[in-house]
């Protein structure tokens, strides 16, 4: 990426003057990868599950039934019941809300804040760079989980606070990545040419820099969503996450691992749910990456 000399060649960018809107074009490219189609379908399913959870779950996810604890999968309870007799199928459906919102919102925080500051630092350099990067270094110097853990413990355990904490933790990665990209891109001839021609900074950033740094940022975003979902699960594992009885996959997995020998379905289904969701997001990220690479498109 550092070596790309056709900086403006990002597909769909206005310089190329392609008639097809960028996102529709991108979708078309992504869908050409078979696995990505599967991934996108899965993600759509999970998203639908999250949106329509109250209408599609057969039982209320928090309904306790002490006469039916630890039942295996059956027609009545498709994924069995948990240690309090709650329907795991309904809980997995409802749990998609916590996991997806944790993933998307945390990654969005990291993406916007991180990329913005990375861009500023890499483009303007000097004092701005210095200040931003010291802060980023300081944040990176914390192990992510520890920072998330400490922030959540200080704010009080809840899903919102966990999302804020995970979001904060993913800021520095985006910032450093964005800065590194900007540094390389700005050294390219055409950017320097644009500068010499007196193009305003805003123009250069939006027209030349941003389109060229998209590829790694998008790949990183997919990783960040996946990271956030897994981190939420880990925070639940360490005891700071979604508040029970609200289901979250991480929490269900954590409780279920204690019942591994008695009721493997308790950990199997939420585990599979995390796994499939995270995997789909990663696959989508890969497909996006391939789709966005102009070289691959040409060949």
């Amino acid at each position: 990426m550092q070596m790309r000399d056709e900086g403006a060649a990002a597909p769909g960018s206005p310089l190329r003057g392609e008639p097809v809107p960028y996102w529709r074009w991108l979708l078309g490219r992504v869908l050409q990868v078979r696995l990505a189609t599967v991934a996108l379908t899965l993600i759509t399913c999970v998203a639908c599950m999250a949106v329509f959870a109250p209408w599609i779950s057969p039982a209320r996810p928090t309904d306790v039934d002490l006469t039916a604890v630890l039942r295996g999968p059956s027609l009545k309870n498709l994924m069995g019941t948990d240690e309090l007799g709650r329907d795991i199928f309904s809980r997995v459906i409802d749990g998609s809300r916590a996991s997806l919102s944790a993933g998307l919102i945390s990654a969005a925080i990291g993406l916007t804040v991180g990329t913005f500051f990375g861009l500023l630092a890499g483009y303007f350099l000097g004092l701005v760079d210095m200040l931003i990067m010291r802060l980023v270094d300081a944040m990176l110097a914390f192990p992510g989980i520890i920072l998330a853990l400490a922030i959540t413990a200080a704010l009080g355990p809840s899903l919102t606070n966990a999302m804020i904490a995970i979001g904060i933790v993913s800021i520095p990665t985006f910032a450093r990545l964005a800065r590194a990209q900007v540094l390389t891109i700005c050294r390219l001839d055409y950017v320097e040419a644009a500068r010499c021609l007196g193009a305003p900074n805003r123009h250069i950033i939006i027209r030349h820099v941003v389109p060229n740094m998209l590829t790694p940022i998008i790949v990183q975003s997919s990783l960040a969503v996946a990271f956030a979902i897994l981190t939420e699960a880990t925070l639940s594992f360490l005891g700071l996450g979604v508040q029970p009885p609200t289901p979250s996959w991480g929490y269900m997995l954590n409780v279920g691992r204690g019942y591994l020998s008695q009721a493997p379905w308790m950990s199997l289904f939420p585990g599979v749910a995390i796994f499939l969701t995270v995997m789909s997001i990663n696959l989508l990220g890969d497909a996006l990456r391939d789709a966005l690479d102009p070289r691959l498109r040409i060949e």
């Binding site: 306790v64 039934d65 002490l66 009080g156 700071l240 508040q243 009885p245």
Partner: peptide
């Protein structure tokens, strides 16, 4: 684990008399 389970079970039973218990789990 055992406290959280107890609390959830109690919460479920109190619902039967119309009492809603909101849980706040803390370290």
């Amino acid at each position: 684990a055992e406290h959280v389970q107890m609390a959830q079970a109690v919460k479920g039973q109190l619902e039967k008399i119309g009492v809603t218990m909101e849980m706040e789990t803390l370290e």
